[in-house]
Design a protein around this nucleic acid. Sequence first.
DNA 1: TAAATATTTAGACAAATATCTAAATATTAT
DNA 2: ATAATATTTAGATATTTGTCTAAATATTTA
Lengths: 84, 84
Amino acid sequence: MNAIFKALNDETRRDILELLRKQEMTAGDIADQFHISKPSISHHLDILKRADLVTSEKKGQFVVYSLNTTIVDDILQWIITLKK
Amino acid sequence: MNAIFKALNDETRRDILELLRKQEMTAGDIADQFHISKPSISHHLDILKRADLVTSEKKGQFVVYSLNTTIVDDILQWIITLKK
DNA sequence: TAAATATTTAGACAAATATCTAAATATTAT
DNA sequence: ATAATATTTAGATATTTGTCTAAATATTTA
């Protein structure tokens, strides 16, 4: 749970998740959406991956990232519990 | 949204929210549940308050903290959107 | 095989954060 | 009024974090 909340505690990373909600994207395409260097985006993607919020698959020279909605359920569960 | 995720990005603060889920508590009673100094807990409570996740009310020399479930809904909404 | 393209790793640095102790403020009880 | 109790504020410090540039790795194309 720690890794998930840590991952969500950054606007750029939350924006990446919203991008991936619509479609999977390569690391480069993701980076192009921000005014941040590619290495920094790569680092953000790594944090999202460690939290299991995204998955990545190498396709040739590209790396395609996708949202992992399974883990999103875990956060939902945690927050819903607060309301019970 | 930033303040909310920032507030949730700490195990102690999440634990405080879970305590308050069951009942409202004074600052001192909350502090007693952790091996952390009272000033530090006071600081955590301040962050939770700025995020509107808790409310506080002074009762005599005590300050009673409660969970604010209205804001919890905002987080739910954000996360649910990720799944749509 | 050499050059080009895509991505990550490494190392550095400034800013943010969690924690502490000491002191200040507010309220209640003697 | 003074002492005791509850909480917050102030200031310091070590750690974590987001960012950058330069270099390394992997893949494709000429």
